[in-house]
Amino acid sequence: MSAAPTPDNGLSGLTEDEALAMDYALGALGRAERKAAELRLVGDPAFRARVEQWQTLLSPLDEATAPATPPASVWAAIAAETTAPAPKPAAVAAKAAPAAGWWHNLALWRGLGIGAPVAAALAVVMLAQPGAGNDPGGDVVAMAGGPQLRATLAGADGKPLLAAAFDPASGQVRFAPVAQSDAGAGKVPELWVIEGSNPPRSLGIIDISAGTAHSIPRDRLAGVKQGAILAISIEPIGGSPTGTPTGPVIATGALTAA
């Protein structure tokens, strides 16, 4: 094999998306690239289909891995967190994190696994009251300037979690309000924008609690445009320490013209 870079190395015709799909399915990406790919999985069904094809192709490899019986304590813990009859909220809170509230629940939604009942409830709360609270006009009114953009941010299961409206004239993103939002538990929501296959770029820590507007610094506005994907992850207070999402991604959605 030649040591020099080979122009035709058996990879001609391999698209960037296909390469990313196989890299992700194989599990060979670093942390930031994985997060970026996971955000695309949510917002891009064609990409997700590619990844799923590779996952299915590779999955028989798992048969070469010896099964291992987990200790009974694991099932006990799982049952306590899932099927146990009506756990007291206090007990749940004590188990996972030293705080309670809405964001505490979000933090429990590991990765893209979003609690269906909670998600459904939020969707009702948020979508039934677009622009309520601080915005008596109902919908956000377009200001003079560029066209308004909207995104419905949904969890991995496709259920809408949040409605966001972006006004390019003011550089503000407004979220439909969420009741009882509590960013305690040492966690805060952080907003990201993803263009194409670029890594997520932070738009800053946000407060989506009361439909308040969140202003995006001018120098970060460049990628916030139609087709880009907005995503929200749960981060330590102060925001992601690494510059890419480190906590669970709770919702993503593509920006479209309002």
Binding site: V74, A77, I78, T82, L108, G113, I114, G115
Partner: peptide
């Protein structure tokens, strides 16, 4: 493993 089955339950 625990995290995975909680996710499976929810998803």
């Amino acid at each position: 493993l625990q995290e995975v089955y909680v996710t499976l339950w929810r998803k």
